[in-house]
Amino acid sequence: MRGRPAGGILAGYVPGSSWLHRAPLWGKFLGVVAAGAASCFLLDWKASGAVLLVLVAAWGSARLGWRRLAGSGRLMLPLCAVLGAFQWWQLGPATAARIVLNLLVCFVAAGLLTATVPLRELLDAVARLAHPLRRWGADPERFALALAIMLRSIPVLAASFDEVGDAARARGLERSVRARALPVVLSAVAYGRRTGEALAARGLADGD
């Protein structure tokens, strides 16, 4: 398996030092949860629209880039259009607007969190969350280890997908799901076993 640098893999985070970047992580997390809840409680499309405007303003004030917002919005656009049209036909324009706007509220709120916290920090926070669970058998250190192995396996497996794809094409099998999937899985298992063996050899999985 040949390696290659994993490009754009940290695409979520936008570096910066705005008030939103400096805001505590738990605060931002609560914000996302609140936005999720809002989609159930906001029953007027005008209220939903106002919340969405506030969130978009927050995005602007944190200098996260309008192009990024538009870019991720483009992913949502077809869904919103189809959904809006369908619900308009079923339930009328006001309800359709409310449903679509609430969807966008959740989307932008979650985007605000992932754009202002670096991935490492988020994952560290998740590992810290596991600490109180220790007494029920959770092991933050092993979790961190599994996380590290997963992140560094992604480029290895992506390369193996490429290689297998090339090999299948060379044999004229590019449309065979089996010829494309099986070698990847076999090499993934072999790679996992080699990694496990290396962990065991270094005594890293021995526990305390």
């Binding site: 058998g137 092991d139 092993r142 280890l145 599994a146 996380l147 590290a148 192995i149 997963m150 992140l151 396996s153 992604i154 290895v156 497996l157 992506a158 997908f161 590019e174 449309r175 799901v177 494309r180 990847v184 899985v185 993934a188 298992v189 790679y191 996992g192 076993r193 990694t195 496990g196 063996e197 962990l199 065991a200 890293l204 999985a205 526990g207």
Partner: peptide, 28 residues
Amino acid sequence: TWDAQSLALVAVFAALIAVSAIVPGIPV
């Protein structure tokens, strides 16, 4: 707890799911 083998397999298969979500689909 899990042995090293399981720990590594869990992590590698998590990566496999991740990669399979981002590689282009196969024309069938």
